[in-house]
Design a binder for these strands. Structure first.
Lengths: 325, 325
DNA sequence: GGAATTCCCGACAGAACCTGTCGTAAATTC
DNA sequence: GAATTTACGACAGGTTCTGTCGGGAATTCC
């Protein structure tokens, strides 16, 4: 076919689909002379599409990232994946980093083949995604500021309202932000306490980025940090109990609640941090197993209170008052 | 500039970026004669790019979805959003529907400008996403089969292991699948029970799609259904209690646990379905409020058991045995 | 119903480009 | 050092591109 436009685009398509390709192969695919292929390569370079080339045995052409995106030649399957990927972006909370999401959706909507568009809509229709009822909205502005400060290695200050309602002002070297369990967390080094701390971004106010910089640990892994630290994050009580339950069953029951389990004395030792004891005590009670409290002493008091409340609740129903109409 | 290839691509770029554009405007942008623009439109149509055109006042050109994707002319911001969107696809569990995700990531990796590529990596590095520790893996095959059956309106059969371990074989008219709270659910009309049922896909085995079809309710909304039904899904016990707690506080505390709350007698009436009572009873106990059990009677027994267990746990620590080294 | 506006297209002349071929240079690998 | 590949200029012959001109068709608005 005589159509330079089509051929040039085909060269680009092959380059995008492959890591490298020789001039002879391109000439064969296009059914033109090798010299013509070389002219096409020059044409693409003139379009600011950066193409690397290497001479000699095994010589080839390859694409390299440039300053501007070249025309994308995507297969229908690739476009489907991209279109599908834009939807959950909002739900995971990342669309704040990609303000062009809506515009991109519009653009794809214009060019996606009808059958493909129909497939995307079908998946959306029959496959529903619900983040969960406890997803907490975080200020987009705060999230972006935090991410920018981390990227630029700048210290930050903000007002913080902790779990017990106490307000404080913090001066932090931020290491990472993490979307976990429906909430955004900031992980960093607290300069006041000289220790690592974790903050819920929805409790942050009056966010400021300092000019002062710091050196962020090069290999800091937010996920690993949270997995190791979460059970003890910001806890008023360090809990240590023994339960008459095999380690396997304990792991199934308690791991999701961020409780450290280890086998001991024919049962399992449970350790975790908690701000309030009732919830944890109730969780243990719900297992129906024997429990031995090692620490804190307050936990025994809590069980005493629960015993009283449970006993009262086990009595036959008392009428509070006549039912209103 | 004299470069037909460039000009043709520019026409395509403008068409992708705009809903519609006139020939005169294109001619002005490209600095060519209107007739030349019309020739370019013909060129693009020859490349199987479907372009609609309308004559008369307000006449214009516009792209319409065709059978094959045209070369995509994306801005850097749009490419950034698309690249970012592919990552959460796995975590939300949708990559099963888009097997081309990895290939698309590779292709974008080849062409994304370095600065952009760096931004994507930076966001990925400082912004971590963790689905939550209780996300349950579902068979990808099962998920896709379910979605396909729904789309095709075909009945399905499968083995099901319910929460209490009982195994059964089900014959279902599937309406939707839903990703909710870290799990995939199938919602459908059970032909054996003649009623709507919800199934966790990770408990499904031996999945078969029938040839028999059915008529799916046209306006079925999976999210709405789950919001209304979830508290009572597959429950052995229908719980009805009163608690000495204001409605506002009750909503904050119990809504995340899928408990229906309504103000009553100065406190709150709580209703929900549960397969096991211990967890719910423990949850109530943890509030420290007065509780009145209306139904079921087993719940009072549960409170009695909890009272006994709590009393035992409140005693000073007893040594189970000597601590091993 | 007619004017104005837009897409649509063929024909023409002049200008510009495309392609295969040939020869030579440079770089790389074996 | 041979073989292999990219790189490029020069040439001839063929092909395409562009602006211009004129006319047709469809649509909107007054």
């Amino acid at each position: 076919m005589y159509d330079p436009v089509m051929r040039v685009l085909t060269v680009l398509e092959i380059l995008q689909a492959r890591d490298f390709v020789s001039g002879a192969e391109l000439a064969e695919r296009l059914e033109v002379d090798l010299r013509t292929v070389q002219r096409y390569i020059v044409r693409l370079k003139d379009l600011n599409i950066p193409i690397d080339s290497s001479r000699g045995v095994g010589g080839a052409y390859r694409l390299k990232p440039g300053f501007r995106l070249p025309p994308l030649l995507l297969t229908n399957e690739e476009a489907f994946a991209l279109s599908l990927g834009l939807r959950p972006l909002r739900q995971v909370g990342l669309s704040a980093f990609a303000p062009a999401t809506e515009g991109t959706l519009a653009k794809l909507g214009r060019v996606l083949p009808s059958a493909l568009h129909e497939s995307v809509r079908t998946v959306e229709e029959v496959v529903a995604i619900e983040p969960g009822p406890w997803v907490v909205s975080t200020s987009v502005d705060c999230l972006i500021k935090a991410a920018s400060a981390i990227r630029a290695a700048h210290r930050i200050r903000f007002g913080y309202q902790s779990h017990d309602g106490a307000a404080s002002r913090r001066h932090i070297e931020p290491y990472a932000v993490l979307h976990f369990d429906g909430r955004w967390y900031l992980i960093g080094h607290c300069l006041s306490r000289c220790a690592m701390r974790t903050f819920r971004l929805d409790r942050v106010t009056d966010f400021e980025v300092s000019k002062a910089t710091f050196r962020r640990p090069a290999d800091f892994d937010a996920r690993r940090y949270m997995q190791e630290r979460m059970p003890f994050v910001q806890s008023d009580y360090q809990i240590d109990v023994w339960i008459d339950m095999p380690i396997e069953e304990a792991e199934r029951n308690f791991a999701p609640w961020r409780i450290v389990t280890e086998p001991q004395d024919g049962g399992t030792r449970l350790r975790c941090g908690r701000d309030r004891l009732e919830m944890f005590a109730a969780l243990l009670l719900s297992t129906g197993k024997q429990i031995v409290v090692r620490s804190p002493p307050e936990l025994r008091k809590t069980f005493k209170q629960l015993a009283k409340a449970a006993k009262q609740a086990s009595r036959p129903e008392q009428r509070i008052s006549k039912r209103p109409l």
